[in-house]
Amino acid sequence: MSIFTPTNQIRLTNVAVVRMKKAGKRFEIACYKNKAMSWRSGAEKDLDEVLQTNTVFVNVSKGQVAKKDDLSSAFGTDDIYTSSDS
Rank of each mutant, 00 (worst) to 15 (best):
M20G: 00
L51R: 08
M37T: 13
L47I: 14
A16V: 09
A74T: 03
K33P: 00
T53C: 14
I80L: 12
E28H: 05
T13D: 13
K62F: 05
P6R: 09
F27C: 01
A74I: 05
F27S: 01
D85H: 13
D46N: 15
S73M: 10
V18M: 06
T82H: 06
L71C: 05
N59G: 03
V65D: 07
G24L: 09
Y81H: 08
L47N: 07
S2W: 03
E44R: 12
S61I: 11
D48F: 12
V58E: 07
T55H: 09
S2R: 07
S83H: 11
K33T: 05
A66I: 03
T13G: 07
A74K: 01
G24V: 10
D46M: 10
C31T: 10
D46G: 05
V50Q: 00
T53Y: 06
D69S: 12
V56G: 02
Q64R: 14
R11N: 12
K67R: 13
Q52S: 06
V50C: 04
Y81P: 00
G63E: 01
S72E: 15
A66K: 02
A43K: 14
V56M: 05
T55R: 10
I10F: 14
K62W: 04
V17T: 09
D69T: 09
G76T: 02
I80Y: 01
A16I: 04
D48S: 10
I3S: 09
T53V: 15
V50Y: 01
R11Y: 13
N8R: 12
Y81K: 11
D79I: 11
M37H: 07
T55Q: 11
A36T: 08
K35Q: 15
V58K: 09
A74R: 01
M1F: 04
I29D: 00
N34L: 14
A16R: 13
I3T: 11
S73N: 06
E28K: 07
D69G: 01
S38G: 02
S38Q: 13
S83D: 12
D48T: 07
A74L: 07
N54E: 14
T5I: 13
R19S: 15
M1Q: 02
D78C: 09
L51I: 04
S73D: 11
S72G: 05
D78G: 06
L71R: 01
V18W: 03
V60Q: 01
I10E: 11
R26I: 15
G63F: 08
G76C: 02
S84I: 04
T82V: 15
T53H: 11
S41I: 10
W39K: 08
A66F: 01
N54F: 13
M1I: 05
A30P: 00
F75V: 02
K45V: 07
E49L: 14
R40L: 15
V15A: 08
G63P: 00
G76Q: 00
T82Q: 11
